[in-house]
Amino acid sequence: MLLPTNFLIEPRMPTFISANLPRRCLSYFSFIALCCATPLMAQETGSSPENSQRDSADVAALLHKMATVPKTLNYQGSFTYQHKDNPALQSFRILHWIEDGVEHERLQHMNGVEREFVREGKSLACDSLGNQLLQGKISQFGANLARLDQLYKFEILGPERVAGREATGLLALPLDKFRHSSLLSIDNETGLVLKSWLVDESSRPLERYQFIDLDLSPDPESMKRPLAKIHKDANSQTDCNPDVLKQPERWQLAWVPPGFIFTGQRQVRQKIDMLMYSDGLTTFSVFIEPAAGVIPEGVAHRGATLVIMDALNYQGKTYRVTVIGEIPIVTAQKVAQSIGGI
């Protein structure tokens, strides 16, 4: 493939200003947008309140399906994955099966050395808080909680075919600048996300994955093949079907973006307090650890994942703070600055 060598050097930070996008790229996009938008716009002008109501019911149904059906299925599928900081296309296989009401999952690398993540033991009856948000089950948490459709503008993009299967495209545009946009293609039959893009505020893709094939009746025995020599366990601990909102112990965040909810807390590496947050589609985690000496401060990212390292002084002690999430840098910075003790 021929790649451009004449990169435009832009002397300014492009993160928040889409006008900084290279002109040629923009004009190309607007050209395509014009051509493609015409039929869509024709449909939209015909939309009425009933239509938009029906759309939002459709969106809710799609998200509900995505949150509830896949976990009950046995399946095996392959997909490719790519993120913005590495042009290499990676490939993975995912295995999922139910045994005695418990989920078993394996995520295997198909390139390079054999290695995999394994997750076992999550009960089918157990819904995490994030999963409940996705299902729209929020009434029990009080009227003040923002619904997903108050955080994102959802748009159904119509039928698609992905991995040889019928799917529905769904675009989730954030209504604020505190989260990224997603583009999901959701399998009509199973609710599995067959294709996903995460896109930043300048409409640059941060990461994307896409299924190539999906087998819904895999042989359960073959899925239990011995684990790869390099494997790690993925933690599946979570509060099950919580019906009240909790607050973190010891720490509090004076600010989180609208709609983000504290989903749990645990200790990692013995001494680090980890606080978890989700809005149903987007997550971030906060890590706080007592530290001495020089505390590294700075920003790192890989693909969609952003890491902010910061120092916190609280009651005469110093702490090392790390905020990690698939979130824009403004969000991470604001969160890092709003950590305090109770």
């Binding site: 998200l63 995505m66 949150a67 896949p70 976990k71 995912i94 999922h96 999952e105 394996r106 995520l107 993540f117 997750r119 995490s128 808080l129 994030g130 999963n131 948000l133 996705l134 996300v193 996903s196 993925a234 599946s236 979570t238 989903t263 749990g264 980890m274 978890m276 947050y277 989700s278 149903g280 589609l281 987007t282 997550t283 971030f284 985690s285 999430g325 698939e326």
Partner: peptide
């Protein structure tokens, strides 16, 4: 956290 709370499994 991301895996448990963002609706996309593993």
């Amino acid at each position: 956290n991301a895996s448990m709370n963002s609706g996309q499994g593993m």
